[in-house]
Amino acid sequence: GATAVSEWTEYKTADGKTYYYNNRTLESTFEKPQELK
């Protein structure tokens, strides 16, 4: 079976905060997504 690849990509803001962006739902969040835990 195919492994589900996380759609979340980790980015940093200009002031160094980490956030996560989902390229399928176009959602962004500062909290670590469930799929990455």
Rank of each mutant, 00 (worst) to 15 (best):
Y19Q: 03
F30Y: 09
N23G: 05
R24G: 04
G1A: 14
E35M: 06
T25H: 01
T18A: 06
T9S: 12
W8F: 01
A14N: 09
S6K: 08
L26G: 15
K12I: 11
E27S: 05
Y21A: 03
T3K: 06
V5E: 12
N22R: 01
T18R: 05
Y21I: 11
L36W: 09
Y20K: 00
E27M: 09
G1V: 14
Q34V: 13
W8I: 01
K17M: 08
T18F: 06
N23F: 10
K17G: 04
A14V: 11
G1R: 09
G16S: 02
R24A: 08
T9Y: 08
R24E: 07
Y20G: 00
A14L: 10
L36V: 07
L36Q: 05
T13I: 03
G16F: 02
E7F: 07
E7S: 05
K17Q: 10
Q34T: 12
S28F: 15
E31P: 02
G16R: 02
E31Q: 10
K12P: 02
A2S: 12
A14S: 10
G16E: 03
Y20R: 00
S6H: 10
Y19D: 00
Y20I: 00
L36T: 06
Y19L: 09
N23M: 11
D15G: 08
E35W: 05
V5S: 13
G16Y: 01
A2Y: 11
G1N: 14
V5K: 09
T29S: 08
T9F: 10
K12T: 12
G1I: 14
E27K: 07
G16A: 01
P33K: 02
W8T: 00
N23Y: 10
Y21N: 02
F30A: 05
A14F: 04
T9A: 11
Q34N: 14
A2F: 12
E10S: 05
L36D: 07
T9E: 10
G1Q: 14
A2E: 12
L36E: 06
G16L: 02
T29V: 09
Q34Y: 11
G1M: 14
Q34R: 10
E35A: 14
E10D: 02
E35R: 04
V5R: 07
F30K: 04
Q34W: 13
E7N: 06
V5C: 15
G16W: 01
K32N: 05
W8Q: 00
Y19K: 04
T25I: 01
D15S: 09
T18D: 03
E27P: 00
K12Q: 11
E27R: 04
G16I: 00
N22L: 00
F30T: 09
K37W: 14
T18E: 03
T13M: 07
E31G: 03
A2V: 14
N23C: 15
Y19T: 03
T18Y: 07
A14E: 10
E10V: 10
T3F: 10
K17S: 06
K37G: 15
D15E: 11
S28A: 12
L26D: 09
P33C: 03
L26S: 12
K17V: 12
